[in-house]
Every structure is written in C-alpha cells, then in structure tokens.
Design a protein around this nucleic acid. Sequence first.
DNA 1: TTGTAGGCGTTATCAT
DNA 2: ATGATAACGCCTACAA
Lengths: 365, 365
Amino acid sequence: MKLGLCKISMFCLARGLVIVVTISEVAKEAGVSVATVSRVLNHCGKVRPETEQKVKEAVVKLQYTINMPARNLRKNESGAILVLARNFTNPFYAKILEGISDEANPAGYNILVSASDGNPKMGFQCIQMLEGRQVDGAILLNCTEDDAVWLKPHIGKYPIVQCCDFVAAFDTPKVIVDHFRTGYEAVQYLVSLGHRRIAFMGAENKHSCTVQRLEGYKKAIKDFELDEEDALYISADANYTFESGCRAVYPMLTGKNPPTAIFCVSDVLALSCIFEAKELGIRVPEEFSVVGCDDVEYARMCHPFLSTFRLPCYEMGRESARQLLRCIHRTPEEYVEIIEDFSLQVRESTGMAGKDVALAVSERT
Amino acid sequence: MKLGLCKISMFCLARGLVIVVTISEVAKEAGVSVATVSRVLNHCGKVRPETEQKVKEAVVKLQYTINMPARNLRKNESGAILVLARNFTNPFYAKILEGISDEANPAGYNILVSASDGNPKMGFQCIQMLEGRQVDGAILLNCTEDDAVWLKPHIGKYPIVQCCDFVAAFDTPKVIVDHFRTGYEAVQYLVSLGHRRIAFMGAENKHSCTVQRLEGYKKAIKDFELDEEDALYISADANYTFESGCRAVYPMLTGKNPPTAIFCVSDVLALSCIFEAKELGIRVPEEFSVVGCDDVEYARMCHPFLSTFRLPCYEMGRESARQLLRCIHRTPEEYVEIIEDFSLQVRESTGMAGKDVALAVSERT
DNA sequence: TTGTAGGCGTTATCAT
DNA sequence: ATGATAACGCCTACAA
C-alpha cells in the first residue's frame, strides 16, 4: 500500500471555524420572529405569502439548513429506522434491504444498518438504539429464540417488525413466508421426480427458515414414507457461506449410500452442493438433484441453473417497512402477520431420479 | 401528563404507556444534581465512588437510558456516518460496506446507508444529511464528475472520503486502487498468452474505475501494437448488471471477427461474458478468455473459475472509515491518497490464444 | 397572521 | 467533589 500526499488543509466544521446559521439569524435577516421562520420551514400555512417570501430569501441568503438533532429532540423522533441482519453480503439480505430503502426513504426515513453476524450482543445494541431514540423503529431480519433475552421486555414498547425469520411468540408485525411449506413442497416435488433418498441442508442457527423448513421436510418424509435418517440432515455454518456448504455436503456425497437429491435452505448453499457434486464428478441433475431457496440473482448465472423457491425478497422488504412505519405512526391496528407467497422455479438442477450416485461414482472410477 | 416524579408519554405502540425517564429524574432519585449524573454517565471521573454508586443504582432502578438526540444536540455531533453507493446488492459494494462497519462500529459510529442508483439527486440528499448534522461524515463509493455540482461547494467543509471511485480534483482523502494499471496489466497478461484481439467491457457510467481502466487498456493496446477498434469497447449498463453484460457481449461474439479475449471492469460482467460465450457454444478459455475485476466470492462458485484482479474491498472499506474518523476528529493531517494494492488471480477463465473464435463457431455449425 | 416564551434532555461553565 | 444554571436549536401553545 502506497501513500501519496495531497494538499494540506483542515476541515472546518461547525464547531469552530464556520458560522453556524440558526433559525434566529434567519428571523433577524427576514425581520420576523423565529416562530414565523419555523412555520415557513414546516409548511404549516398560516403565513402571509409575502412574509413567507422574505423568510425564504433569508434562508437562501444565509444558506441556512435545519439542525436535525435539534428538531428531533423537540419532536421526540429520529427520522431513521434500523435494519438488523446477519450481514449484507448475502444477496438475500441485500435485496430485502433494497426493498426497505425504497419504501422508507420516500417517506422521509433514513436507513441505519447493523450486521449482527449472529452475535446476540448486537441485538442488545439494537435495543440501545431504540431506547436512545436514535431510531424510531427496527426491522429484524434474523430474529430467533436467542433474542428473547433482550427482545422480550421491549416488545410492544418499541416499533419492531420481524421479517423473514421470526419468533412466533414475539408480538410484532411479521412479514414472512410459510417456511414449513417450502420444506414440505421441496420434498413433494422431488418425490414427483422419483427420488426416495432426499437430504436436507440447513445451517447452524435457530432461524425459523432453517428450523421450520426442516420440520416441513421431516413431515413430508413421513407422509411419503421415504428414507428417514439423521445422516440425511446436514448443516452449513450459521452464515450460509459457500465454503461451509461444500464442507458439509462432501462427506455425504462421498460416503455410503448418498442421497439422490437435496434441498438447501439457501441458494448459496445449493450452489455449493452443485459445485461440490461436479467436483466429485457427479452429474447434476442426472445423478444428483439440487433444490435451493431464495432465488437470488446468482441462481441463473451459470449452468445448471438452480431450481429454487422464489421468495419475494424485495417485496418483503417493502412490506416490512410499510408495517414499521404504520407502527411508528401508531395507526390503530392489530399486529398483522403478512404471509408472502413463494413459488418453485423449476430450472436445470433437478431431474428424474436415475442411477444411484454411489454406483455412478464407482462406475467412473 | 405526570405521574409522581415521572413523566408519562404515549411512547410506542398502542398497547404501551412508556415511562420516559430523564436525567433529572435520576438525579432526584439518587439525591444528587443533574450535573453529577451527567458526569457519571460520561465517565469523566471527578465523582466520589459512593456518589457514583448511588447514581448507578438510580439508573438501573428507573431503567434510565440516555436520549441521544439531546446529547447530539448539545455536543453538536450525530455519532453516525453515511455510506453512499449505487446499491448494496452488488457484492462488491456490500463487501466494502462490511469493512466500513467493522471499523466504524467499534468506534461508536452508526452506519447510515443510501443507495444512489446512479441518481445525482441522491448526492444532494447526501449533502443534506451532512448539513442537517444527521451524520458526521460521508464515504462516497461512486463519486464522479457529475457530482461536482453538489459536492464542490462542500469539499473541505464536511468530512468526506472518496473510496474506490473518485474524482481526483476533489480534495478529500481517497482510498483507491490504480485503475489505470489494472486495465494495462489485464492486456499485458492476455498478450503474454498470445492474444492480439482483446476487447474491453465497461459500463455506462463515469466511474473512474470504468474510465481509467479503459485508458489503461488503450495505452496497452498502443504499446503492444494490438488491434485497435472502437468495436472492441462495449458497455454494460451503469449498474453492472448481469443481464446487461450478456446483452452487450452477444453482438460482439456473434459478429464478424470477434475478439479472443476480453477484460471486464467487474466480476459480474465477466461472469456474464463467460455465460454468454458458453450459451453460444464458445469454449472458455479454449476459444475465449475472460478477465474480471474485483474478485467477489461468486468468482469461484462455478467453473471455469474466474481469472480476475483481486481488489481488497473489505480493507478499502476499513481504511475509508479510518480516514473518515480521522477527518471527523480533525486529527491534523494532510489529505492522504491511499492506493491499495491489487493482484491478478489467475484461475480458469483465461488460456493461451488458440483458434479464432468465429472459425471455431463455424466449425461447430 | 405574527410574536413571546417555555420547554425538549443534555452537557459544560461556573461557582461553591 | 458537587450544584445551579446557561446554553444547544428548534417547535408550539398561548397571546396579541
């Protein structure tokens, strides 16, 4: 890393070197009172047009800008909302964030982000921001039972929306999908292709999207009387990283009696399964079918295109923001639970059950 | 309305009346003055241990939490910084954001994000937040000449750092890579593999990472006396989307005299080239070599693994935050220009120049 | 329609 | 070491 030097100069911020223009200076300049200036600033009518004009001219002349912390203090609000997720490098969370922004920004709210990285300590920090009035509300993208400690006492006290992952017992608006059903339908779909040994890849976290999908999967396994083995449930790490997905699926694919299909709780993990299978010379989907969940952009960036459940990430983000703003503005209403639809996108990573994988591998070697 | 010593306000959701505790209530409870409470809260010593103890007990008993807008007003700071990027769904920006968070959060700063989507209007909003004291500084990830209008008058007035994309004339700290050199070295590398017709894919924006890489590319084309044609420069859309990359490269690959190699200013675009080539039955890298830039995680998620320039995204984020905090705290220092290193990651999408692509295509058909 | 004045909850500057 | 009190900049009854 090199270091080049540019011109020397000091920042001159409000605190010292620059004259900070306040509402009273504007008032003086315009020859009116601060109250009038404030009224003009807040467009609350009740001001004579020529007075308003004078004030506006003064504002421009003095380059006045409103001091938000001051206004916020007075109005007891912050004009910002918090979005708490594990991270934003996962395209799934990034897309939700986009939806939230698109809804909240036009409404005049700023977005504050915080990556918990699965650390419950961040949940505490989240509440701190609510308590400290730094944000008017929060959207939690990865709420789990682990958050009960800090969250429970604050439910109903602050505007909080759970999105995607949630804890049913926490009484907040929820914007979710029926995770159980995705798990069930994944199996159902694979069974329709003739698969009987179907694996499940979750993640080392207590997210409802992991837990409930596993439940849906298990229920389907029972209903369809399929092979039921603990060895068929594997887990990537809590953050759904590609590498951990590869690590998790490897022993299963190289072990005895491997499955002919797998359902993964995240697209990135599904991609890791496809990748690892191909590395091992196992053809997808001829010998191994993979179903993902999320439908992120990367699912269609290389062949075989991923068969996956499309969740309306962007829309979930928007709806979460809508619900949160509703809470913040105290629109009298019950806590709604909005269940977004999903749909299976059948593409190229799934196919009819054919030869046994182990057999195929041994043939090749 | 009041209840005993404490004020009551309808704080959040319909259900809860929340008692808002202020510093003066704590003072009353502890039998001291607000000044003392404040001193304890700010750990500025000068308080007798037993007094401190009393205050702390009162804080716990009343569940007091500091009111940040009030503190911010008084201290004339916000404790937040702004990160402005085109979007955060591109893993490149997401990774930089991660670096910024990891540096700024421990320092007590919150992160406010804003997606400009290339809209200069957002630049204006950015300055608004600086002026409104909602943030103490800003990191701009996509600064271009187009931003001169709103940015120029505020340079030196507010703490601003340009990261990755930048305008040299704007006198701010910069955390960048030598984009020109990536363009030059990409060609150099491809030449070493025997390529003579090398294309360039940029994007419809004025980012320095697009403009300067093109310049480096052109210089190398001249230096190595390679084919020099306007038809060899193509552009994806301003946001580097996968689809636009496909659209841009298609006519080139199917047209007359296609190149045998291409350098793309972003990994996502490079992936789109690989994808489109494969769709057309053109083998990568046997018939068509592709070099990307960024080295995002997705570059190694499917074969052929992308040969690309690794930019230290995360580190650039951290360094940007470091520089910004330095500006905010007015550490007397010059505006530095930190040039981060990059390195070419040779993987599977590049190979020796072989048969002419058009020829290969015609052979196949 | 406009002005006066009293907070909002802190911190910081004085005294004591 | 502690306390009284004046800002910080704005909003908003209440008066005029």
